[in-house]
Design a protein around this nucleic acid. Structure first.
Lengths: 183, 183
DNA sequence: TTGACTGTACCGTCTGGACGGTTTATGTGC
DNA sequence: GCACATAAACCGTCCAGACGGTACAGTCAA
């Protein structure tokens, strides 16, 4: 069991995401984050010298996580001799809730200073371009990736109201269409 | 020529969207809106007694506009004997920029008080449900609607980095697949 | 001893909102 | 046609509280 407790830094970032998701990006104050993380205000400022640094930390951790996820998916797909996109989509559905919290960094950064999203924009743009280009039908792949975006970004605003049974059908269809891309 | 100048109320709502899009939801202050609308702070507070009312106004106007757009699309589709979804998708691509500004209401409301989005959530949820159910292949329709969501919500965060030529190809494909839903 | 904090006090600025005053449009009686 | 009344639309200022950030002395485990 290497379930060692998360670092204070990560606890603070988790708390920030919780605050944004629950109270809105406007209430993401250093005081609120400190209270949510059960850390003093000084403690937060020890790890992140100012609020911009905190937001940068949120975006950077999100990108690192997403990057890792994609890498895992591509490795698993390669090992299984399957299309990478299938693994990407399945991973999204399997860890739907986890991703929802993660992306709160996007809302927070866009609210405070939209420029903070520049690195994320570049990273996601090139990643999605590559994912779709590595496919016999890039436009079809793009369309499916856009549908995935729709699901994730809807969840970001709480617009994820599709009933569970429809969601599994959508998942099945998405995976089926992904396989068809490669034929 | 009935191009009468917009009401002060609408000017204020336009200004609010401009501020959110340019500076982020965090900078949506009554002062900033007043300056952007070339109105005094008192003038803003005359039309919207407090900030919550301003945000409600933004969300309500957005819903009214979207509702009107959908109604127009369905009417035009009915008149032309075409699938409604085709008109919905074409309208989205044709007025891409207009819609981008409109949806800033979503960002602003989610930042300040996420509950303000409840009516929008209900409205969009039922509208999309109906649009897809009125189709021989509801799951396929949902997938295409999700792709549209992906495009619109990406634009909301400035994540609309797909090159123009790919975008037109995506549009063509989306319309083609929509027609296929009805076969 | 050092790094990782806690706790408190404080400062300057920003923000929402209340409030009183002023201009403009619309009648209304004569 | 005109003085007057009334209300709607709008302006400018003020204030309490919230917020970001600083400073600094103290705690405590490794």
């Amino acid at each position: 069991m290497t379930a060692h407790k998360p670092s204070t830094r990560d606890t603070i970032l988790d708390a920030a995401e919780t605050v944004v998701g629950r109270d809105g990006a406007r209430r993401l104050t250093i005081d609120a984050v400190a209270a949510e993380a059960c850390v003093s205000k000084g403690g937060v400022l020890y790890h992140f010298p100012n609020k911009i640094a905190l937001l940068k930390g949120m975006v950077e951790r999100m990108m690192a996580d997403v990057s890792q996820d994609f890498a895992n998916c591509e490795a698993a797909a390669h090992a299984a001799g399957e299309p990478p996109l299938v693994h990407v989509f399945n991973a999204m559905f399997d860890r739907h809730d986890a991703r929802k919290a993660l992306s709160m960094a996007l809302l927070a950064a866009s609210a405070e200073h939209p420029d903070l999203l520049d690195p994320a924009r570049d990273f996601l743009s090139s990643t999605f371009q590559r994912l779709s280009d590595d496919t016999p039908d890039p436009i079809g792949a793009r369309l499916l990736l856009l549908a995935m975006d729709g699901l994730k970004l809807s969840a970001l605003l709480g617009f994820d109201t599709i009933p569970e049974n429809q969601l599994t059908q959508i998942r099945d269809r998405l995976v089926r269409l992904t396989h068809e891309l490669y034929q």
